[in-house]
Write a protein that binds this DNA or RNA. Structure first.
Lengths: 225, 225
DNA sequence: ATTCATCAAGTCATCAGATGACTTGATGAA
DNA sequence: TTCATCAAGTCATCTGATGACTTGATGAAT
């Protein structure tokens, strides 16, 4: 069931304040009312106002200067984006990460240095099987390999996002299904490296897509239950 | 000059607490010490502890339940990941968004509903040219169209990320180059819609890639200067 | 033995008041 | 004109208190 909407004063104060900022009540760089005034405006205590302001500071919307006041730093709320991504379903997260995997493999095929190639081959060789040191360690080795592919793309934004998705997906899997996803074999992994080594972007994309297909199919199946 | 590191208690408390969480001192779902205990551990007042906890709650790391305690919700610091993505170069951000565009177009070709198609065609028709209402408004209409393609993919994670990149890229472009990027024409846009309408994922991918190529080439050129 | 209302302890939510640290503009002397 | 000083305003932090909520224990009723 949908839980009855439980309100808490700090969140509602944060929301009101954020809405005013995003709505442009104060311009960028402008000083907002002081704590006492906000306390009156929002009908909450100064402590609550401080908590709300602190949250908006941490989200990059506000900026406080001791002795001077609190100023608007930005009027676009981008910080909540990844939070909302976290709350999307496992299939959506997996697909988004796959999008990064695909394009990263393509770019890696175009840009990889010999050092990148060495790194990828080394990690692929070390990957081994689940039997070596348990599934926890195997997953770590598997991820290290995938990350090396993304690293070979030379795109730092993709690397950061890949890290984020990997962590988020791991959490979601822990919280829901566990061990129900098929694990692509060594050969599927090697095909990706080969395509990148051959500097063949199309084959790299195809290899990653073939690699992802069974996992996504299983996710779709779980989604339908 | 680098300003002398100015410490403020709440930030330092937030940092300590975040470090303990990320470091795995408490597992996911586990309850952390109460406010009084944290106050002792961090040597700050309860008010300061509350501000620190509130920030971590807003970042999705903690979860407070009145009457029960404060619990670890996640050990992934997504807000920091986003900050790091923002600090990467324009080319990296654009490529990452392109990766989303490509896969979203492919998924849209597989999943789009008639309503999605109507929406895309309507926005494409309304897109018009720079002459209608200035470049600011044109960019907004252009983005609305692209977002409708991502929306047709039915993937919420991709939509959120697309929004984030759009905001980040807009900020970066405003701060650096402005108006130096080529703008794909109406025909290139229509090709994407046609492929999606035909439910042809490969052609959709090709259309988006052709669409992106000149912009990326220009970014590479600017990067080399 | 099971069920359920009641209760007490623990915890977060919120408020109020006070003091300290810092910024800023005004003031006035050199 | 320059510069030290000062006072008012503001955020930073602490302390103490009260209310609301959760949770597990208790014990009576079935």
């Amino acid at each position: 069931m949908q839980p009855a909407s439980r309100t808490n004063l700090t969140d509602s104060a944060t929301g009101s304040l954020r809405a005013e900022i995003i709505g442009g009540r104060w311009g960028i760089g402008e000083r907002i009312p002081n704590e006492a005034a906000l306390s009156d405006l929002l009908s909450v205590s100064r402590g609550t106002v401080r908590e709300a302001v602190r949250v908006l500071v941490s989200q990059g919307l506000l900026d406080t200067r001791q002795g001077s006041g609190t100023y608007v730093r930005s009027t676009v709320d981008s910080s909540a984006a990844l939070d909302r991504v976290k709350r999307t379903g496992l299939r959506d997260q997996w697909e988004a990460r796959a999008a990064l995997d695909l394009e990263a493999a393509r770019l890696a095929a175009l840009r990889r240095t010999p050092a990148d190639l060495d790194q990828m081959r080394r990690l692929l060789a070390e990957r081994g099987t689940v039997a070596d040191g348990g599934s926890e360690a195997f997953i770590r080795r598997d991820l290290a390999f995938h990350k090396s592919v993304v690293a070979a793309s030379g795109n730092r934004a993709m690397m950061e996002l890949y890290d984020f998705f990997t962590a988020a997906i791991t959490e979601t899997i822990h919280a829901t299904i566990d061990g129900e996803l098929p694990e692509p074999d060594q050969q599927a992994h090697a095909a990706i490296v080969d395509a990148i080594a051959a500097s063949d972007p199309d084959r790299a994309v195809a290899a990653v897509r073939a690699f992802m297909a069974p996992v996504l199919a299983q996710l779709e199946r779980l989604l339908c239950q």
